[in-house]
């Protein structure tokens, strides 16, 4: 347990709790940015530099901005006056706590987790590029196709219906 890990974990968890508990949606999305940044720091701690920077680019640069745009377009930036929690929220919290109990018990009791820490692995961008172009070239093409389809689909779903406009 290095102090860097503890600080990053604390920042990530606190901002995640803030992201789901603020009443104002704009504050929620800004806390979410801090959570994503904390996770990027954790990836750097784990020697996964490429994934850390991809996290910054994709999540902070694109997903958070998309969420802010959605808040803008649905006019939900004001702090709501009515209740923000669903009627059965106590049951929801209970379900979440049970899930955490099961996961935590499995993690702490597991025999499969080895005690020794292996040496830090090397994952240069060159190695990742080699793997993407040789071993993982088919998944890469499929992901490209999926992203194109998702982009076209998102535009069509959000496009104004002509019949509705008349």
């Amino acid at each position: 347990m290095s102090p860097v890990f503890l600080i990053l974990a604390l920042v990530t968890l606190l901002s995640a709790v803030a992201a789901i508990s603020f009443r104002n949606l704009v504050h929620c999305s800004l806390s979410l940015v801090v959570t994503f940044a904390g996770l990027a720091g954790l990836y750097l701690q784990l020697h996964a530099q490429f994934v850390g920077f991809a996290q910054v680019l994709v999540y902070i640069g694109a997903v958070a901005i998309l969420i802010v745009f959605a808040i803008l377009l649905t006019r939900s930036a004001d702090t709501p006056n009515h209740a923000v929690l669903a009627p059965g929220w106590l049951v929801g919290i209970a379900v979440a706590v049970v899930v955490f109990g099961a996961l935590g018990l499995a993690i702490l009791k597991s025999e499969a987790i080895s005690k020794k820490v292996p040496a830090a692995p090397e994952a240069t961008v060159k190695q990742i590029g080699d793997a993407l172009m040789n071993q993982y070239v088919l998944p890469l093409e499929v992901i490209g196709l999926l992203l194109t389809a998702a982009m076209i689909g998102a535009v069509i779903i959000a496009m104004r219906d002509d019949k509705e406009a008349k």
């Binding site: 990530t12 968890l13 995640a16 709790v17 992201a19 789901i20 508990s21 949606l25 929620c28 969420i67 959605a70 808040i71 649905t74 939900s76 209740a83 923000v84 929690l85 669903a86 929220w89 929801g92 919290i93 379900v95 979440a96 706590v97 899930v99 955490f100 996961l103 935590g104 993690i107």
Partner: peptide
């Protein structure tokens, strides 16, 4: 696991679709 739990709690207890 904690992060997953927080996300799960947020997804099932809040009324707003964006949340």
């Amino acid at each position: 696991a904690l992060l997953f739990t927080i996300g799960l709690a947020g997804a099932i207890t809040r009324r707003n679709a964006i949340l």
